[in-house]
């Protein structure tokens, strides 16, 4: 049984008289306690999937078709208020850029405890106590001091730890991590990834991990979906993907990566031929679904 089920999701951006497809019948399924990697180049639509789940789609983006089922319930049929009750409690987000994802005029403690008081209905004093415990859990030294600090007083890695604590604070069933380490230094990235996985295992959370870095995917994901132009090209286990990629495009992405342990390995950009083929496929899909 799966926790999250995205079925044939089609999203179109309608601006003035033009309309652009953002997602083309995307289907994904997430098991309890597993990590699904959503991989693609910029513009592949991977963040759009996250936005659709989190009810953060841009005003002009319309869901034409499809279904998002969370815990057997259709998210798209819920009212705004019902959906808000899930967000932050059962579904949480770890954002991309820790430098700008914390409110500069509010303390770390406020960020943490407002979620707790809002979703769990506990008192402010109790929330503060729990917040300190959470900071301790994400391995922040001196949580008693950090809780009253403002975000500008913390380093990027520390801020990402705080955001991770926020995401896990209400023991959500699903966490969406949107390129959570792209903005970090590589050494900090490793520590943050370790932390995310440690927390994910501890709480048995399902994790939707959005990234463009196949190296990171190999280290943290159980299952991988490769996206291109709003389509899912391949959806398989991480083991299978790195052992024998099923799609030429996946292969091409791996071949384009430089590797420090294989200095003589040639790096090959994705070939124009492959891209043209993929774009032709996209056009075909669009024509076939034009009247749906």
């Amino acid at each position: 049984m799966s926790l999250l089920e995205v079925q044939d999701l089609r999203v179109t951006l309608r601006q003035h008289s033009t309309s652009t497809r953002l997602l083309r019948d995307v289907s994904l399924s997430m098991e309890y306690g597993k990590v699904l990697g959503l991989v693609g180049e910029s513009g592949a639509g991977k963040s759009m999937v996250a936005k659709a789940i989190l009810d953060l789609l841009p005003k002009k983006a319309v869901i034409d078709k499809g279904e998002i089922k969370f815990n057997q319930n259709s998210l798209l049929r819920l009212s705004v208020a019902e959906r808000r009750k899930l967000l932050g409690k059962d579904i949480a987000l770890i954002p991309q850029d820790p430098m700008v994802s914390l409110n500069p005029v509010r303390t770390i403690g406020t960020h943490l405890s407002e979620g707790l008081t809002h979703h769990l209905g506990i008192t402010k004093a109790e929330a503060r106590k729990q917040s300190i415990a959470l900071l301790d859990e994400v391995l922040i030294r001196d949580p008693e001091r950090v809780i009253d600090a403002f975000s500008h007083e913390l380093s990027g890695g520390m801020r990402q730890r705080v955001l991770i604590a926020m995401a896990f604070s209400c023991s959500p069933k699903l966490i969406i991590a949107d390129e959570p380490t792209t903005a970090l230094d590589v050494t900090v990235q490793k520590r943050v990834l370790s932390l995310i996985r440690m927390m994910q295992r501890k709480q048995n959370t399902s994790l939707l991990f959005i990234t463009h870095d196949l190296g990171v995917v190999a280290k943290i994901c159980d299952q991988v979906a490769i996206m291109y132009e709003g389509r899912v090209l391949e959806n398989t286990t991480a083991k299978q993907l790195f052992h024998s990629p099923g799609h030429d495009y996946t292969r091409a992405l791996i071949d384009a990566m430089p590797r420090f342990d294989q200095p003589d390995k040639p790096i090959l950009p994705v070939s124009r031929k492959l891209k043209e083929q993929l774009q032709a496929e996209t056009r075909e899909v669009d024509q076939a679904t034009y009247n749906d």
Binding site: V186, T187, Q189, K190, R191, L193, S194, R197, D213, L214, G215, V216, V217, A218, K219, I220, A238, K239, F242, H243, I254, M257, R259, F260, D261
Partner: peptide, 18 residues
């Protein structure tokens, strides 16, 4: 160097002490 994630499955990589 050790922090660079290579595109190959390694279940222990994240557990290795930094």
């Amino acid at each position: 160097i050790r922090a660079i994630p290579l595109p190959e499955i390694d279940d222990n990589w994240l557990d290795q002490n930094n």
